[in-house]
């Protein structure tokens, strides 16, 4: 800055020019990274396009119904996935890591476990897929004669089921975090859980078993998984003597296991 001022009138435009050139190159870098991101997600989605095109053209030999809508849908999926992956690196991963680091620094086990429970419960209780499954399950229970067909009975059953699954996921994260802290081997925890699942399957009412098995799959949403994975890996990284690869993963697996156990118990109690 000082140098250019000394060089005289001719060069007074220089700082402006340099700044705009810098802005242009920054904008260009943004465009470039966005293009690379879109290309990457395009590659992620390419197998779907190939499979659908192959079966439609070669096997079924049918024209595409509504080709325009399909192309628009494909663009939405590509852009959506690219945005999500960008947000993942900007928000979800850093949040999980920062929280893990902050809790380890604070050194309070009770608060960490409470946080784990709140995260599991909170992310699950409002999960749209779970609300849908709970509603279906209430109808199935009414048809099987487990509850009456009244509107209030259905609603109470569905809400109870939702809370059960949410508590189960909360407990899964508490157990998972304890496991990371203590270094328990994951396979003992998971195998033990599945033994309980098998035992409960033999005694739980038949109508609830299918619901219980499916409830394990709806708890791990696309937002929760990266956050929970970053939290687990973050904890295993900060705590001495833990290996992030061996001890950091496993929270997601636990979160899909405990709902099966708790829902079958719910089915036996209600």
């Amino acid at each position: 800055m000082l140098d250019t001022r000394r060089l005289g009138a001719d060069e007074t435009e220089q700082p402006d020019l340099a700044a705009s050139r810098r802005a242009a190159s920054r904008a260009w870098r943004h465009v470039w990274s966005a293009a690379r991101l879109l290309l990457g997600t395009g590659r992620d989605l390419l197998p779907i396009v190939v499979v659908v095109a192959f079966f439609q053209i070669v096997v079924l030999r049918q024209p595409f119904p509504n080709l325009e809508a399909i192309l628009v849908g494909l663009v939405l999926v590509t852009v959506g996935l690219a945005l999500f992956l960008r947000g993942l690196e900007m928000a979800l991963f850093p949040i999980g890591e920062t929280m893990a680091e902050a809790f380890a620094h604070k050194g309070s086990l009770a608060w960490l476990l409470l946080f784990a429970f709140a995260l599991g419960f909170g992310t699950t209780v409002a999960e749209p897929a779970l609300i849908a499954v709970a509603g279906e399950a209430a109808k199935a229970a009414a048809e099987a004669g487990l509850i009456t067909r009244e509107e209030t009975a259905l609603a109470r059953y569905a809400t109870g089921l939702r809370l059960t699954v949410a508590v189960a996921v909360g407990i899964a994260l508490v157990v998972g975090v304890l496991r990371i802290l203590k270094g328990w081997p994951i396979h003992w925890v998971i195998m033990g859980g599945y033994v309980i699942v098998v035992l409960l399957t033999t005694v739980a009412p038949r109508e609830i078993v299918g619901v219980a098995y499916d409830s394990g799959g709806v708890t791990t949403s696309t937002v929760t998984v990266p956050l929970v994975a970053a939290l687990g890996v973050g904890l295993a990284t900060v705590i001495k003597g833990r290996n992030p690869l061996i001890d950091g993963f496993g929270l997601v697996a636990l979160a899909s296991l405990t709902p099966m156990i708790f829902v079958m118990i719910y089915g036996m109690v209600v």
């Binding site: 779907i48 659908v52 509504n66 809508a69 399909i70 192309l71 628009v72 849908g73 494909l74 663009v75 939405l76 999926v77 590509t78 852009v79 959506g80 996935l81 945005l83 999500f84």
Partner: peptide
Amino acid sequence: LFLVGLEEAL
């Protein structure tokens, strides 16, 4: 966007 693309078209 991802979900809409899936549900509406694919």
